[in-house]
């Protein structure tokens, strides 16, 4: 569904992605782990074309996405959701408005239909009673669940999660992860960058370990967590456990 080929990116002189090859299959949950600065968030942002890359290509549903083609990128973005570390909800809109903004403005959905669908997704993340609230009135966990509902409302092929629980108080992490587990169970294709190793073990179909702009090792959670083959993976895992 998503194929990344020989992706390379520089920030000026800094070579942050040094040739990434990765394929994400339909309904697969791919969890990317690695130390800060390993390039995992940058990779995720490249998939959504929020970062430009200098070499390689990204193929989504058989189509090579042209970085210079705004229209193509917008079309692609409308089908690949993104959830951010800092939620990035629209503070001037109510919870429901946040969720229906995309379907109405991007897909041209009728207000009435969008509202109906928006409520459905708010229900799915357990926040139907908050539809009229503004983001500033919500806890971090609630904000992130609204952000997930906002991504879901676009009925995406896949959702990219960029450290979705890193900005949350520890006691709020669970509610967000449980929503994500439900999505995984329902067959949503997901690419998740996270530091939550327990969660990775539980939901991932595949774990990808990145270091210094390269994929060092990948495999099932059992393979990567229980018997990592590469020394760098072993040393990283011993540090985070």
């Amino acid at each position: 569904m998503i194929t990344i080929k020989e992706l390379e990116k520089w920030f000026d002189q800094l070579h942050v992605l040094k040739g990434i090859d990765l394929t994400v299959n339909p309904s697969e949950v791919v969890v990317i782990i690695g130390a800060s600065g390993s390039g995992k968030s940058t990779l995720l942002r490249c998939i959504n074309f929020l970062e430009e890359f200098q070499k390689g290509e990204i193929v989504i549903e058989g189509k090579v996405i042209n970085q210079q083609d705004e229209k193509m990128i917008n079309e692609m973005r409308s089908r690949v959701g993104m959830v951010f570390q800092h939620f990035n909800l629209f503070p001037h809109m109510s919870v429901l408005q946040n969720v229906i903004e995309g379907p109405i403005q991007v897909k041209g959905m009728a207000q009435e239909e969008a509202v109906k669908m928006g409520r459905c997704y708010l229900d799915e993340v357990g926040l139907l009673d908050k539809e009229d609230a503004y983001p500033s009135m919500l806890s971090g966990g609630q904000k992130q669940r609204v952000a997930i509902a906002r991504a879901l409302a676009m009925e995406p092929l896949a959702i990219l999660f960029d450290e979705p629980t890193s900005a949350l108080d520890p006691e709020l992490v669970g509610e967000v992860l449980s929503v994500m587990k439900n999505l995984a169970r329902d067959g949503m294709t997901m690419v998740i960058v996270t530091h939550e190793m327990g969660f990775a073990r539980e939901v991932a179909d595949r774990v990808v370990y990145m270091d210094e702009g390269l994929i060092v090792e990948q495999g099932t959670p059992q393979q990567v967590f229980d018997s990592p083959q590469k020394e760098r993976t072993q040393s990283f895992l011993s540090r985070v456990r």
């Binding site: 993104m82 629209f90 001037h92």
Partner: peptide, 27 residues
Amino acid sequence: IAVGQMEAARSLGMTYRKAILRIVLPQ
């Protein structure tokens, strides 16, 4: 207005124009 606002709008597939008008300018 935080860069994240523009990114969130664009990640939904909004055009730059629309993101400015609907998300950035009101704030």
